[in-house]
């Protein structure tokens, strides 16, 4: 199967082979990676074929475009690439992250919130699917579990937590600890009624040495004002 990556990138597979290879791609991260590179390469062959287009083509295209409706954005694919399982990430953890993502998608019914969440889901999926994704998890307290998936290539980490108490006029705030002892806010956790925090994506993963969580006045603080309820070093 793997050897078909070249033919696929050159668009040289016929129906049956194409269908089978695409099925295979969904399970095979290394194939998908290779296909991306080979597709970019094939596109350069296309660029090299560049030639001056006919003069009136531009006008005709613009005419047609002004009469053509655009497609609505595709629904966010919540289907999870199986490769997470194969990456050696614990099934339980991956499943719980998936569940968090799915529940997040279902719970929101306000449009604006939904579109923000879609963006978030996409970012979460990108980090989780990164080839260099690393997982660190801990149980900082009875019934509380937290996990961090870090990807240096994406420069991001995804934090998720379960078993948190809902707070009334306070918020859980996540912090990234940086070399030299400084900390930077990574944002406030949105905790659902079941005590699970929606996955939070934070940038600056490359320089984070650890994460910490504190309880802060509603809306968060510029710097932590209470002792962390959880601190966790991240594996380099």
């Amino acid at each position: 199967m793997h050897t078909l990556a070249g033919a696929y990138a050159l668009n040289a597979l016929e129906e049956e082979g194409l269908r089978r290879f695409e099925e295979h791609l969904a399970y095979c991260e290394s194939c998908a990676q290779e296909v991306r590179g080979l597709t970019e390469t094939a596109a350069l062959l296309g660029t090299a074929a560049a030639r001056r287009p006919p003069q009136d083509l531009r006008r005709r295209v613009l005419d047609e475009v002004s009469r053509t409706r655009q497609l609505a954005p595709a629904p966010v694919p919540l289907a999870i690439p199986r490769r997470w399982w194969q990456k050696g990430m614990g099934l339980g953890l991956a499943a719980s992250l998936l569940l968090a993502v799915v529940l997040g998608g279902v719970a929101a019914n306000q449009y604006r919130e939904l579109s923000e969440m879609r963006q978030n889901e996409r970012e979460v999926a990108l980090v989780l699917a990164a080839p260099d994704a690393r997982t660190t998890s801990a149980q900082p307290a009875e019934g509380v579990s937290v996990s961090v998936v870090t990807s240096h290539s994406r420069g991001r980490l995804v934090f998720s937590a379960e078993g948190l108490d809902r707070l009334d006029d306070e918020d859980y705030q996540l912090w990234l600890a940086r070399p030299g002892g400084s900390v930077r806010s990574a944002g406030i956790l949105a905790v659902d009624s079941d005590g699970s925090a929606r996955p939070l994506v934070a940038t600056g993963a490359d320089e984070a040495e650890g994460v910490a969580m504190t309880v802060e006045p509603e809306g968060g603080s510029p710097q932590p004002t209470t002792a962390p309820m959880m601190e966790m070093p991240l594996e380099g």
Binding site: T3, L4, A5, G6, A7, A9, L10, A12, R36, G37, L38, T39, E40, T41, A42, L44, L45
Partner: peptide, 23 residues
């Protein structure tokens, strides 16, 4: 067929490396 499949792939791989494609 098998030869062609392989040549398409290793040909593109060589092109990719020669062109310095990063993806």
């Amino acid at each position: 067929l098998g030869t062609i499949k392989t040549r398409m792939r290793d040909g593109l791989v060589r092109l990719r490396d020669c062109l310095g494609v990063e993806w």
